[in-house]
Design a protein around this nucleic acid. Sequence first.
DNA 1: GCTCGTATGTGCATCAATGCACATACCGTC
DNA 2: GACGGTATGTGCATTGATGCACATACGAGC
Lengths: 304, 304
Amino acid sequence: MRVDLRRLPSPDDLLILLTVARLGRFNAVAETLGTTHTTISRRILALDKQLGGRTLERSPHGWELTQLGASAVTAAETIEETLGSLSGLIRQDQHALSGLVRISTSDGFGSEFVTPALVRLQRQHPLLNVEMLSATRKVSQNRSGVDLEIVVGRTDVSNAQTIFLSNYYLRLYASPAYAGEFGLPETLDGVGQHCFVSYVESALQVAELGHRWSAQLPMPKSSFQATSVFAQVEAVRRGAGIGLLPNFMVAGTPEFVPVLPDDFQRQLPIWAVARPESLRSAPVQAVIASLKEEVRSRQELLAG
Amino acid sequence: MRVDLRRLPSPDDLLILLTVARLGRFNAVAETLGTTHTTISRRILALDKQLGGRTLERSPHGWELTQLGASAVTAAETIEETLGSLSGLIRQDQHALSGLVRISTSDGFGSEFVTPALVRLQRQHPLLNVEMLSATRKVSQNRSGVDLEIVVGRTDVSNAQTIFLSNYYLRLYASPAYAGEFGLPETLDGVGQHCFVSYVESALQVAELGHRWSAQLPMPKSSFQATSVFAQVEAVRRGAGIGLLPNFMVAGTPEFVPVLPDDFQRQLPIWAVARPESLRSAPVQAVIASLKEEVRSRQELLAG
DNA sequence: GCTCGTATGTGCATCAATGCACATACCGTC
DNA sequence: GACGGTATGTGCATTGATGCACATACGAGC
């Protein structure tokens, strides 16, 4: 039934009348609703005008409903019940996270940051299912099948929202054994005389991750190329050469020594990217919040 | 179910969302609700905050509901329906007067004023049933069975409301034939030499209507007594004697001549009396309004 | 690509609702 | 009857909601 909403009695005023009917005194109602008796008095007066009659009459023990008031209170009870059910629904949605969230992420950052963040969230919400798709890829244009993408580098997308998570650094590293056997270069040009460990350039989707990204790094004498950052880290650890690696994966361990740390580093941003409709999902929002918390609390590792 | 009303989403905002869901554009909603798109935009924003998520998303053909928005609209529809029913109830009460109104009234005033007032009202509201109980009686203390009493004289009641209708006058009258045959007295003392037409004193409930009410009128030589004022009027008309009659029943007609009009008249108020709960009834109120209109428009007759 | 019309959002002025201080009324106690 | 406590109503200042003017964005048509 469609009615002219401008002509209806105020539902807020009806709810106030309901509280007056329950408590019997304006002061009690004001206290309960966190307002003043004067406001209550005025709202009842306004309601009486809207309804065209008196809703309350004085009695020795406070206010009592007129016949008109009783009809109004019946309507108010229905409204209260309806609003209460709606609130209950929302509160349920917010607290009991469930369903499936699919996340695409690079394997380095994914295993180091995304995995612990998701594990922590799933411990809080056992009904939440998580799928983590590891791929070092450029941000996709449509993200079908994926709720959230964790991407590196620039993000030129027009129909999605990007949420900055953190910066991290690619730096040159070698193993102590390699350094001891072959020495380390004194300048960046000297890097060309060494074996280089890197991504497979022809298969690389994020150019910033490759050694060709800037003219600073010369063509290597020989190279060890792998599509997995874990393989690269392992290759460097085993003395295959100098590698351009994410700092957060090797920094501070004695198995890796920095190469020309004052001369070269590359800063890369990491983003979470999602469609607007995905961002309205409480689980997705919870994942984002958990990721933010993870990078926030481990900022030293990312900056190191 | 009792809920904390301070924490509930605003029902007014929910009704706005309902209108947006129906019309798809803020401008259309603003026009329908007699406000501006900026206000609509702000109210939706406020609602989204209350509900903890977005209720609407953009689509090529306007706004579309989110899942949360759909739940909110379902609640809004219930509220709209509830308010519409309440409004319908009130409108019905106000415009289509129906039911039964029982009125107790004196037979002189009743037939001259109350009857035309009620007839006029019933013409406007054919479903309104009226019972007119004629009795020249003192205002009763409980009025059971009667919605409204029309009473003469003083009204000392503690649990009812009295509404002043008008004053009228008792004056002395005789017929021209009587005057021609017996002459008219020159002073009030001379009235005692005449036959007197009056109420039955022993059965009279309203003392002010009787000739004994003040010392101004002497005991008559003989008397014609009747419980009906109509009988008294007829008796005077037929020459039974001098009568103390309501002015509005005889003034201005050639069948009655005033007796000592400058020496004697008695002013009496007429009231409508009702319990507070009767006064909340739209039909009773309508009767009172009609009575007031009747005496107002015929004030010359009452004062004459 | 430019222009126009329509839809939505921002900032400031205006208006309506509310809070606060006080007044009045009523009831119970001494 | 006087006093104190409680309940409700009035007038003015303050706060929050809304209107108005303008800005921005988008889509359709030329």
